[in-house]
């Protein structure tokens, strides 16, 4: 079964460019504010949105996303708000993913979670702290619900392991550009390109790169070798620093438009 995400990535490929995937946690900067950010992403020409499930112990996130998650949790964001945000994003026309640490899925119910994603128009779920060895139940659930399962691989992942992890991926493979947590960086690690070429030896499904991408130049550079560019902290930083919601949305849109150009000028 082809998801909306599969189609969005194929469309970008047909246009000989990388896709732009934008990340925002549900409930940030507020429940309604998040929906506005998603609409802005759509208007700016973003291809897919990744909705974060805010979690109390985000060990893979740097200070920016940690702060956004705390704000979302103080606003009582839970599974119900995540699913309705997925629905909003889907209805606005964006291919929609959820990125979540594992415990909220396990607590909600593994099969029910995958089904709710599907019911609300979501294409798939990124599970950054779920190794394939712990994935048996999850794999059954995503297959039953017809959604994509996206795993993250790192520069330290061995070639032999890349073969096994990518065989569990559908939609795309999430290549973490560096060893570290989320956050903006002055440059995208050179290891990212090596990792992408190592992944391509093992699979033909698209490879998207995340961690540390925040500018048009960086997006352009990553888009020269990856099928998709994932940007998160840069948008969140803007929203955290904005003096008003209107100013934040305006600046998010400006950055999104820059990045949309970046992924189009690489090839």
């Amino acid at each position: 079964m082809r998801t909306h995400l599969d189609q969005a990535l194929e469309k970008a490929k047909n246009e000989n460019r990388a896709a732009l995937i934008a990340y925002i946690p549900a409930g940030f900067p507020s429940y309604e504010g998040c929906k506005k950010v998603i609409s802005v992403f759509q208007q700016a020409g973003v291809d897919a949105v990744e909705i974060g499930f805010p979690y109390s112990d985000p060990v893979m996130d740097g200070p920016t996303i940690q702060e956004a998650a705390s704000i979302a949790l103080r606003g009582r964001t839970g599974a119900a708000q995540v699913f309705s945000t997925v629905k909003h994003a889907h209805e606005s026309g964006l291919a929609t993913l959820v990125m979540t640490y594992w415990n909220p899925i396990e607590k909600f119910g593994v099969e029910a979670f995958a089904q709710e994603i599907s019911n609300n128009g979501g294409s798939g779920v990124i599970t950054p702290d779920l190794p394939i060895e712990e994935s048996t139940q999850w794999q059954g659930a995503v297959q039953a619900s017809g959604i994509n399962s996206i795993y993250v691989v790192a520069p330290s992942t061995t070639q032999e392991r890349l073969a096994r992890v990518t065989s569990h991926c559908s939609g795309f493979v999430y290549a973490a550009s560096l060893m570290g947590v989320t956050g903006t960086r002055t440059s995208v690690a050179s290891g990212a390109q090596d990792l992408v070429s190592r992944i391509r030896k093992e699979t033909t499904i698209p490879v998207c790169v995340g961690l540390g991408v925040s500018t048009r130049e960086q997006a352009k550079s990553v888009a020269s070798y990856a099928d998709g560019v994932i940007v998160g902290s840069a948008f969140i930083k803007i929203l955290l620093e904005a003096k008003s919601e209107a100013q934040g949305l305006e600046r998010v849109e400006a950055l999104a438009r820059e990045l949309v150009l970046g992924v189009r000028e690489a090839r």
Binding site: M60, E134, T157
Partner: peptide, 21 residues
């Protein structure tokens, strides 16, 4: 799948980013 050692019944295992594996 599911055969990783380091479990105590349903407990234990590894729920970490791939970077740490």
């Amino acid at each position: 799948n599911g055969e990783i050692i380091g479990h105590f019944g349903p407990y234990g295992g590894r729920f970490v980013p791939e970077a740490l594996i």
